[in-house]
Design a binder for these strands. Sequence first.
DNA 1: AGCATTATATAGCAATCACTACAGAGATAG
DNA 2: CTATCTCTGTAGTGATTGCTATATAATGCT
Lengths: 195, 195
Amino acid sequence: MALGRPRNFDMDQALDRALHVFWRKGYEGATLCDLTEAMGINPPSLYAAFGNKEGLFRKALDRYEAKHAALWTEALAAPTAYEAVKQLLEGSANSLGDKRNPRGCLLVQAALCGGEECDPVTKELSARRDASVALIGERLKRAKREGDLPAGADPGSLARFVVTVIHGMAVQAASGANRKQLEAVAKTALRAWPQ
Amino acid sequence: MALGRPRNFDMDQALDRALHVFWRKGYEGATLCDLTEAMGINPPSLYAAFGNKEGLFRKALDRYEAKHAALWTEALAAPTAYEAVKQLLEGSANSLGDKRNPRGCLLVQAALCGGEECDPVTKELSARRDASVALIGERLKRAKREGDLPAGADPGSLARFVVTVIHGMAVQAASGANRKQLEAVAKTALRAWPQ
DNA sequence: AGCATTATATAGCAATCACTACAGAGATAG
DNA sequence: CTATCTCTGTAGTGATTGCTATATAATGCT
């Protein structure tokens, strides 16, 4: 067993609470007072466990992505590229329309921009959003090789379009759009599929 | 002429400078120190002219929208609904890809979420974004009455889709997407047009 | 000139920010 | 038991936040 006094709180639960705060208020908007209160711990415990505010945010971000990983891996494993994108768009609409969660998407609204002190966070979020473009792009390149996409189709542009719509839905969700409206957007976007 | 000591700075230029700061750093991220320095004035002058930080932001927001009004009015005045939406999407791609401006869209990134003190700003931005959905929706309803849209088309959903793509492009632009990539997204989105 | 009025510059306000020094509590090891 | 180690709660750190009190400068009116 570990030496010294044992930790008095559950890491996963505390991280979930922190995630919830960052999700609602963004990186800059979430104060340490907000965070410690929601996590049920005092500042020294937070700093001992997570380093600092940015470290806590990165852990919460990992947790956020882990919760959405299933949707992405399952969607991208679909037999056809169209089916994969359909699952991504509809799954995103469904998730963003879930009223049990805070509105919107953490990767979009936590720090689209901000003061200088949150520059690394802004860059990190940007990189993770770009990663999803690359992920879909790889799936669509494979589809093109397999003849699952018309010869004229551009996997890169198509991937960027899909992610653009998902992030646009995240903005809509942040404004209060409901699941039905988001599903209609997803359905409309699918009409852009080549042939 | 006005009574008392005349103002020593140009309102429009100062507002442009403030807009630029809010555009890059968002509402919370822009400090009064950032703003006064960029505007070339001292805090008392700012407060005398604009009331407070939120008042200044609202004025900057008006100025931002005024600069984009031409694109919208001209696009919505196009003879067909398709041409109107085409101009909106391509115009947005062009504007968001302009490297002379800060990245992204002020209405999206200034305060998608935040601490409690910026709640009215978040709501104001949300309302203005919704207004653009309504604006396009009205144009598309007219198009349907005129037979310019198929009977099965839903003007409301279509309008929300268009705005969703534009806001998604704004997120892409905030991450550094260039004009060419944004134009490709706009082109792909237009394929979703009914019939 | 003298007064009223408005803007400016200096300087600093209370409140809040992210973060930490310190002492004690709770565990293991010997 | 004592020694050692790590976590916890209290209480606060200096820095920065949005904002303002005060005195002075610059104008028009009489």
